[in-house]
Structures are given as structure tokens and as C-alpha cells.
């Protein structure tokens, strides 16, 4: 289930209320967590997830405010609505956490991920890899006579699709940043 079309156009309140709080269906949610960038903050957040048995599908973290020493952690997680609510409440009560936003329910949002993909091949495979890369608007970051390193940015689905196409063309290695996400609109 794509988080992007799930709540498109729905208001904040109604989107929240539409959910069955005790449904058994797993949902994928993207959370943006603003934290103090202090010693061990990432360990705290990860420890919460592992200690309570929550899933982490993707995790990115970087300081976004160098003067205020705030980091933004974007975590993509899967769980029933009740588990997702628990995750948000558990995160929110941590002393280092300033804000928790569930981008999946708070309105439309954008998600982007960057990937580096290494492909080895010669002849038609090499040409095909290059052609596919153009279709996906991937950029060539490094090349030898028998390999490419592509840089690709996009939603996680797009990167999955590209990586899949590269497998028969000589895929060697993939590095992905994990999802960075942000709510659409002026706020």
C-alpha cells in the first residue's frame, strides 16, 4: 500500500478518524522524528524499536539544524494501526524527542531515496544497462570499460524497479540511503 495515495486530499482529522484503531491489517507508515543530536540518540530510537519488537523498514538520520543541534530521523515502519500508535507514543515520550510526525496520516507527503547501483557487463548488456538508466533518469557517476556506477533518486518503488531490471544485466552492488520524506504544502 503506497502511503502517498492512501490519504491524498483527506483532511488531517478525517484521515485519522477513518482508521480502525484495532484492525489486524499491517500498514506502512513513514514517521519523521525531530530529536536532539546528542550522544546515543540513534541508539535510543533503534533500541526502542528492537526492544519492543517493532519493525524498521528504512531509517535515515542526519543533523538538519546545526545551530540548534537537531537531527531528523525518518523511519519507515510496518505494523497494525494499534502498533503504529504505540510506536508514535513511545517515541514521543522520550526525553530527546521534540516532535513526531506521521507523514502517512498527516496529509500528502513526498518520499525520496537515493541509490548507487554498480553494474558489470560488456556488449549488449552494457548498452541495455545504459539505455535503462536513461529511462530512469539515472546518472552515471563512474565508468570503466566493463562497468557503471549509476546514481538514482526517486521513490523507493522506482529504485526497486530499477534494481530489479539491473539484475540480469550484471548487478554487482547496491547502496541506498533510505527514505527521506516531507509533508507537501506550505507548512
Amino acid at each position: 500500500m503506497s502511503p502517498l495515495d492512501l490519504k491524498k486530499g483527506a483532511s488531517r482529522k478525517s484521515a485519522y478518524d477513518l482508521k480502525t484503531p484495532f484492525s489486524d491489517v499491517n500498514e506502512r507508515h513513514t514517521l519523521a522524528v525531530l530529536v536532539d543530536n546528542v550522544d546515543g540518540v540513534l541508539a535510543r530510537v533503534i533500541g526502542l524499536f528492537s526492544g519492543r519488537g517493532y519493525n524498521i523498514d528504512s531509517l535515515t538520520v542526519a543533523e538538519v539544524d546545526h545551530t540548534g543541534h537537531r537531527s531528523r530521523i525518518t523511519v519507515v515502519t510496518t505494523g497494525t494501526p494499534q502498533v503504529i500508535n504505540q510506536i508514535k507514543a513511545q517515541l514521543d515520550r522520550m526525553v530527546v524527542v521534540h516532535e513526531v510526525h506521521d507523514l502517512t496520516v498527516e496529509g500528502p507527503s513526498v518520499e525520496r531515496e537515493l541509490a548507487l547501483v554498480k553494474v558489470r557487463g560488456t556488449g549488449t548488456e552494457r548498452v541495455e544497462a545504459m539505455r535503462t538508466a536513461e529511462i530512469f533518469r539515472a546518472r552515471v557517476m563512474d565508468t570503466t570499460t566493463e562497468s557503471f556506477v549509476f546514481e538514482l533518486t526517486g521513490a523507493p518503488d522506482k529504485i526497486d524497479a530499477f534494481v530489479e531490471l539491473m539484475v540480469p544485466l550484471g548487478l554487482v552492488e547496491v547502496a541506498r540511503t533510505g527514505v527521506a520524506a516531507m509533508a507537501r504544502g506550505s507548512h
Binding site: 484503531p21 484495532f22 494499534q82 500508535n85 504505540q86 507514543a89 513511545q90 514521543d92 515520550r93
Partner: peptide, 11 residues
């Protein structure tokens, strides 16, 4: 006082 206690075990 702890929001994470709400709906944790019982709705």
C-alpha cells in the same frame, strides 16, 4: 499521564 499506556493492551 503516559500516552503510551493508552490502548496498549486494552482498547
Amino acid at each position: 499521564i503516559d500516552p503510551s499506556s493508552i490502548n496498549k493492551n486494552i482498547r
